[in-house]
Nucleic acid binder design. Structure first.
Length: 857
RNA sequence: GCGAAAGUGGCGGAACUGGCAGACGCGCCGGACUUAGGAUCCGGUGGCCGAGAGGCCAUGGGGGUUCAAGUCCCCCCUUUCGCACCA
């Protein structure tokens, strides 16, 4: 059986011709809709997902690395008999489209659709096995209408609400940003420093799920620990107590108001020598009004409020404050303590007020030293000399034993926290409470290219949801974009002016659009049922496919997309649309591709376009290179030399298999021949490779070592075929005896396993060779090779012999050589004797099949 | 400052539970085949000493545990990432 290529490849072309092969197989996959799937309860499902793409224009080799990783996993699972859903789509709303419109006059939709068309072509030329018939773009009416539908369900549950508040404002993007989208005080997208604005905004009440998201994280044992840590930090749960400090009235000495503070260290409350208010605290203005010089007071407040926001929240400003002249009563000591305004107290965490315990909190300590507030030690660190407030040079923040704390003196901190919280609850001055760093998710965006928020404002009826029957609220066609001012939708009178769904009177539509992270929070469910016109998706279909078994993408989404999606999953669970709690079972965060030490980007001019690589080497070489160069999590430095090496390897595989097909007669089945030692050795290598590659792909996802194992098998096969005069080896040897049938059988087994295991990495080449080997049905029908444990078992092993831990000799022995024999052989060895002569042999460590170590002194 | 991960040949990287450090690839050196080789095939390639057999040194640095350490423990250095006035 010679090499018998399919239709598109000229059989006279014997060299590896990736362009022809890749065209042939891509056309065939498309014609046969090879990767389309349907629910099938009889087969195990596998949902393999990569983060969908923002259609920025061109994919570079850094973007596609992720898609290749997903494709290796998907193709492997498919061969292992799983029903694999492997979809792709487009995160198509967003600012760049609108900015392009402002700059070049193209409509955002045109720009987006053109980019999608181009990038889709790029991905198809890479031969990634997507179920393309499920593709969608989030800017499609049939997608974003379900954003609106889901928004309304959240509105009904009080999970979507509108509030005026101080929000992050990016002056470059001309829109609001959620807290998650501010990185080091700058916009996550454009790096412009973020300012603030007071605006009416829509929020999703993600804080209601704070504890659930935290607890759920504990179940995510197949997520990188780093991502979970980031999420836990972001949620920032802290348990403590709310305690009220009554404000002592200016006249008479009665009590009027009270200041509630949050503390995690109620055990230090006997040392609370001041109450500090954030400049924005509501009481601050009232206290100002009551002072002798309200204008001066107010001016100082304004000074604090106007400080740089980032500096204020990151500790980069000098701690400053001023005395309000008023006092509050410490509910535990009964003593009056001064009320100060302090610039480092955050208005939007806890209650915006704290009790200052200078002896036991470093920030309070610095503040107290500066303004000469009293420092009172109430917790003594265990086993250390007693502290005194006057001598401290830093706060003693550690837990210890309480002193000078009335009835609580003598208690250790942990116990004191419990008892003092109970005491506060009993006498009504406080209660245990939990605070989160996590804030509600602000989703209003003052931009055009997004999902309109389905809300109508009526002067008579107030804020009304758009009825489901009126969905979608379509994004109107806007032709000119200035990039200035309010939401562009506010300019479109036909859009804004509408009728109230409740009273029918004149009303106005909401003109903000939704954050595009709303789109990406549930798109993975839509893939399960992408054309559903009655609901976002059929819950039964999601029950079959969900949750996502394998999800791969960049770590930059650790606390953006990945936390929003987990939130959405739980909301959808509450609504009854999904049955699971967590959307992504296994997460892989892939490393970026660098060039000249920098992330590829258009502005740096260091992008490598996959199309250029395809023209020279073909998709398979590019795929193999990106998988081989490093484990998926690690970032890689692009090198052309590495690509060349991968190309050479594929040429080597091609020649090996083609020569085998040309020269070898049909092989008898492996169990019908008598194998010689060389054949058994090859089989051992074959089946060991199957085992290694299988675990490297499925368990560890170390695709680089999977590839190197396959390279070793190829090297082995070259030697074997030459020695046995099979294929190319026979030609070199000239005419002679035909190869032994057992050797051909072993070689065929190895070559077939090789081609099958290569197919997730280099699918075009593998399909072509599989066909050449005489199989008409493709690699998926053939299935993933199975490791024969009996064949792996070695007959002989090389056992290293050490003297005092240093290698001195090697013994080649039968695998089952008993311990005593190993020991005797080791001691007899002349090299061992040379190093033990004149010494006493203390003991001999024998690890059967592994090692002998002679200890001599 | 706090926390996490990492540091291995000229380079990318292997080494799974402590058991032959450097798999595999790139690069480099040599050989074969050749009019030719930047194709292909075969071989070599951590450093130092040695003609050789062989020996010594070697996984960022320093200590330790162990028959045995890249792997475990302690201290330090460097890099990357995350957190950083959250009371």
């Amino acid at each position: 059986m010679g090499y018998n290529p399919g239709t598109a490849v000229d059989s006279s072309v014997r060299d590896y011709d990736p362009q022809a092969i890749e065209r042939k197989w891509q056309e065939r996959w498309q014609a046969t809709r090879a990767f389309e799937v349907a629910e099938d309860p009889d087969r195990p499902k596998f949902y393999c997902l990569v983060m969908f793409a923002y259609p920025s224009g061109h994919a570079h080799v850094g973007h596609v690395r992720n898609y290749m990783i997903g494709d290796v996993v998907a193709r492997t699972r498919r061969m292992q008999g799983h029903n694999v859903l492997h979809p792709f789509g487009w995160d198509a709303f967003g600012l760049p489209a609108e900015n392009a419109a402002i700059k070049h006059g193209t409509h955002p939709e045109r720009w987006t659709l053109d980019n999608i068309a181009h990038m889709k072509g790029q991905l198809q030329r890479l031969g990634i096995s997507y179920a393309w018939e499920r593709e969608f773009a989030t800017c499609e009416r049939d997608y974003y209408r379900w954003n609106q539908w889901l928004f309304l369900r959240m509105f009904e549950r009080d999970l979507a609400y509108r509030q005026r508040s101080t929000v992050n404002w990016c002056s470059s993007c001309e829109t609001v940003l959620a807290n998650e989208q501010v990185v080091d005080g700058a916009c996550w997208r454009c790096a412009t420093e973020v300012g603030t604005r007071d605006l009416n905004q829509w929020f999703f009440r993600i804080t209601r799920y704070a504890d659930a998201l935290l607890e759920g994280a504990d179940q995510l044992d197949q997520w990188p620990e780093q991502v979970l840590t980031m999420q836990r930090n972001w949620i920032g749960r802290s348990a403590g107590a709310l305690v009220r400090f009554p404000v002592i009235a200016a006249e008479r000495g009665g009590e009027e108001d009270s200041i509630e503070v949050f503390t995690t260290r109620i055990d230090t409350i006997y040392g609370a020598t001041a109450v500090l208010l954030a400049p924005e605290h509501p009481l601050a203005d009232r206290l100002a009004a009551a002072t002798a010089d309200p204008a001066a007071f107010a001016a100082r407040l304004e000074g604090f409020r106007g400080l740089d926001r980032t500096a204020r929240t990151t500790g980069q400003i000098e701690k400053e404050g001023f005395d309000t002249g008023r006092s509050a009563r410490n509910p535990f000591t009964g003593e009056p303590v001064p009320i100060w305004i302090a610039n480092f107290v955050l208005a939007d965490y806890g209650t915006g007020a704290i009790m200052a315990v200078p002896a036991h909190d470093q920030r309070d300590f610095e503040f107290a030293r500066k303004y000469d507030l009293s420092v009172r030690v109430v917790v003594q660190p265990a086993g250390e000399p007693a502290l005194s407030g006057a001598e401290l040079d830093a706060a003693a923040a550690a837990y210890g034993v309480l002193v000078d704390s009335g009835p609580f003196s003598g208690l250790p901190s942990a116990q004191a926290i419990r008892k003092m919280t109970e005491a506060a609850e009993r006498d009504g001055t406080g209660r245990g409470a939990v605070q989160f760093r996590l804030k509600d998710w602000g989703i209003s965006r003052q931009r055009y290219w997004g999902t309109p928020i389905p809300i109508i404002y009526c002067d008579a009826c107030g804020t009304r949801p758009v009825p489901d029957a009126d969905l979608p609220v379509e994004l109107p066609r806007v032709e000119r974009f200035s990039g200035r001012g309010d939401s562009p939708l506010a300019e479109v009178a036909e859009f804004v002016e509408t009728a109230c769904p409740s009273c029918g009177g004149p009303a106005r539509r909401e003109t903000d659009t939704m954050d595009t992270f709303v789109d990406s929070s549930w798109y993975y469910y839509r893939y399960c049922d992408p054309r559903n016109e009655d609901q976002p998706f059929d819950p039964r279909k999601v029950a079959y496919w969900g949750p996502v078994d394998f999800y791969s993408g960049g770590i930059e989404h650790a606390i953006l997309h990945l936390i929003y999606s987990r939130f959405f999953c739980r909301v959808l669970n509450d609504i009854g649309l999904v049955a699971h709690d967590e959307p992504f079972t296994r997460l892989l965060t892939q490393g970026m591709v660098l060039r000249n030490g920098a992330v590829m980007s258009k502005s740096k001019g260091n992008v490598v376009d996959p199309d250029d690589m395809l023209a020279t080497y073909g998709a398979d070489t590019l795929r193999l290179y990106e998988m081989f160069v490093a484990p998926p999590e690690r970032e890689i430095e692009w090198t052309d030399a590495g690509l060349e090496g991968s190309y050479r390897f594929l040429g080597r595989v091609w020649r090996l298999v083609v020569a085998f097909c040309d020269a070898a007669p049909a092989a008898p089945p492996i169990d019908a021949v008598t194998l010689e030692a060389a054949d058994r050795a090859l089989r051992r290598r074959t089946h060991d490779t199957i085992r290694r590659v299988s675990t490297d792909i499925d368990v560890r996802i170390h695709l680089n070592t999977a590839v190197s194992a396959l390279m070793e098998l190829v090297n082995e096969l070259y030697g074997f075929c030459a020695r046995e005069r099979i294929g190319a080896g026979a030609a070199a040897d000239g005419a002679g005896r035909p190869p032994r049938p057992a050797a051909v059988a072993a070689a065929r087994e190895a070559i077939e396993a090789l081609v099958l295991m290569l197919s997730p990495f280099v699918p075009h080449l593998s399909e072509e060779l599989w066909e050449a080997l005489g199989h008409a049905d493709g690699v998926v029908a053939a299935g993933w090779p199975v490791c024969d444990e009996a064949a792996v078992r070695a007959e002989e092993v090389v056992v290293p012999v050490q003297v005092n831990g240093r290698l001195r000799a090697r013994l080649t022995v039968a695998v089952d050589t008993p311990q005593e024999v190993l020991e005797a052989l080791a001691l007899e060895h002349p090299h061992v004797g040379a190093h033990t002569s004149g010494k006493r042999i203390m003991k001999v460590i024998v690890v059967p099949r592994k090692l002998v170590n002679v200890v001599a002194r």
